[in-house]
């Protein structure tokens, strides 16, 4: 099995003769050789124990102890990966910082008894994962995530938490609802969750090793040819062309930018076109790349997303307009509260 995988990897190298030596050393390593099963599965079990301890439950619930045990367990999982990692294949320190914050905060989301704090910890998870997005060079999505999630969705959650809380009785302002104090089947849930983790990490270790090696080169550089405005701006900033000169377009409106030659045809209004050399470091920024991918490759999906949002808005309006009747128990509780209030006044 293992030798077969190696032969396949060697086949990839043969098929890509232009890939240099530096790249070949960075090719995906056979991950089953570098991860340490004792640390990985031991950390998995320890993490499960910690999360089971951290969930709120009847009787004693040692949340701090649980969090510490879970941290040790999850840390062991990552250490199990780092120990035998081939040179240069380890993520940067920032990765560990953001990952610890994201996972710790998401553990707190499911273990904090008060919903408001759970929502605030979820915002922390969002901030940390947008840090991970930045490490993955996805700047646009990192900031869109903060704006959409932390700025919009979570505020909706906070509003609903404020709308949907029982009016506290004055004597027990700090009391929590019964359903917030105890979780349901914490041990069974955690065991199921970590069986999922063990299976997923095993499959990942196999599958990632079999992925084709990544190719070098900036993504979609060819699309620079569709951005005459950007090229003009860069040429103008480097004073290669004057303010009135524009990039020539052919009869179909396609700008005359030749990336393989590294030249572009420019002309002043009414003047003769001539070729200028493009600067060597033309790159497509992340936002431009995402824009091209969204609008050129997936135009249909945008339409569908628009329909989904419209339907959600209509549905929310219809749901919110509906007049609700209290069921018997809630009505009885309300009547009792009114009667108690009236008696309090008469006394």
């Amino acid at each position: 099995m293992r030798s077969g995988r190696k032969a396949r990897a060697a086949g990839f190298d043969r098929r890509l003769p232009h890939v240099g030596n530096s790249l070949r050393s960075a090719r995906s390593p056979d991950l089953s050789e570098f991860f340490n099963p004792v640390l990985l599965y031991g950390g998995c079990a320890l993490g499960a124990l910690g999360i089971a301890l951290a969930l709120p439950r009847r009787g004693v619930s040692p949340q701090v102890l649980g969090a510490i045990v879970a941290a040790i367990g999850l840390g062991a999982m990552f250490l199990g990966l780092g120990v035998a990692t081939p040179d240069g294949a380890r993520p940067r320190v920032m990765f560990y910082i953001f990952a610890v914050i994201a996972l710790g905060a998401s553990l707190r989301v499911i273990s904090h008894p008060r919903p408001v704090y759970a929502a605030l910890y979820f915002i922390l998870t969002i901030l940390a994962s947008s840090g991970l997005y930045l490490l993955l060079s996805a700047e646009f999505m990192a900031f869109a995530l903060i704006i959409v999630y932390a700025g919009a969705i979570l505020i909706t959650y906070l509003f609903v938490i404020m709308l949907a809380t029982e009016t506290p009785v004055e004597s027990e302002l700090e009391a929590l609802a019964e359903y917030d104090r105890y979780s349901r089947e914490p041990i069974a849930a955690t065991v199921a969750g970590f069986i999922l983790i063990a299976a997923l990490s095993t499959l990942l270790a196999r599958g990632v090793g079999e992925l084709p090696p990544p190719r070098a080169g900036s993504p979609d550089v060819a699309r620079i040819a569709d951005l005459p405005g950007k090229v003009e701006r860069i040429l103008r900033d480097s004073e290669t062309i004057t303010g009135s000169q524009r990039i020539v377009r052919d009869a179909e409106g396609k700008p005359a930018i030749d990336l393989s030659e590294g030249t572009a045809l420019v002309a002043a209004p009414g003047g003769e076109p001539h070729a200028v050399r493009l600067p060597g470091d033309l790159v497509l920024t992340n936002t431009e790349g995402v824009g091209f991918s969204l609008l050129v490759d997936h135009p249909g999906s945008i339409e569908i997303a628009g329909v989904i949002l419209l339907m959600a808005m209509l549905g929310a309006v219809v749901l919110a307009r509906k007049k609700v009747e209290l069921d018997e128990r809630a009505r009885a509780r309300q009547l009792a509260a009114q009667r108690a209030a009236a008696e309090g006044v008469s006394l």
């Binding site: 105890y182 089947e185 270790a205």
Partner: peptide, 30 residues
């Protein structure tokens, strides 16, 4: 290009966060 080992680290974070979400969904009552 990003090495496969590093990809595996990110995927492990993602898998752990997903499992924490599953555990919370099954066990919390609110």
């Amino acid at each position: 290009p990003m090495p496969g080992a590093t990809l595996y680290h990110y995927l492990l974070v993602s898998a752990l966060m997903f499992a924490i979400g599953v555990i919370g969904f099954v066990s919390r009552r609110n």
